[in-house]
């Protein structure tokens, strides 16, 4: 038992990898990208099943809709979270494609000089991230108003 503890790597694991506290902004975007991705794939599996009921005729579709509306406000809140996930995952994914596949927003290799500000995390990257945040939050609020408007709250 004591031996096993020694062999374990210190403070590693899933929660540690998703915990960006004290680190840079990009690591927060990494955590969000991963969590939204998992939310979206779980929703997609459910969504394919949901749409499958369309092929079974109007009665089956009505039953599915009734089942979903029995969740009450949680259905709308869930859809709102999924809409936000899709918006963020798409926008941030576009930034990552620019970074990874095209080598953009990174800056050229330079001679490192004190205080060693890394160019890959500097101005261009920050501008891209803040633009994404502003656009996603604006669209997310719009989606929220629309979803809750259908519910008759607003």
């Amino acid at each position: 038992m004591e031996k096993e503890k020694e062999e374990k790597r210190y403070k590693s694991g899933l929660l540690r990898s998703l915990r960006p506290y004290k680190f840079n902004l990009e690591r927060y975007t990494y955590t969000l990208h991963r969590i939204t991705g998992v939310i979206l794939i779980l929703y997609l599996i459910a969504h394919v099943f949901e749409i499958y009921h369309l092929a079974l005729g109007p009665v089956a579709w009505q039953q599915t809709m009734a089942l979903l509306s029995s969740l009450g406000i949680w259905e709308k809140i869930g859809l709102w979270i999924i809409a936000g996930s899709a918006l963020y995952h798409g926008a941030n994914g576009l930034r990552l494609i620019l970074n990874e596949a095209f080598g953009m927003l990174l800056g050229k290799p330079v001679l490192p000089e004190y205080p060693y500000t890394p160019t890959s995390l500097s101005r261009n990257q920050k501008i891209a991230i803040y633009t994404i945040v502003v656009i996603v939050v604006a669209l997310w609020i719009w989606a929220g108003i629309y979803l809750l408007w259908g519910l008759g709250i607003i």
Binding site: A83, A86, G90, L94, I97, W142, Y146, W149, G150
Partner: peptide
């Protein structure tokens, strides 16, 4: 991912306020 950015936008627009319907409709 690049394909989905266009296609998913289209899909979301079909269930968006721009259709002039409420969400239940």
């Amino acid at each position: 991912a690049l394909i989905m950015i266009f296609v998913l936008t289209f899909h979301l627009l079909l269930v968006s306020p721009l259709t002039g319907k409420t969400f239940d409709q």
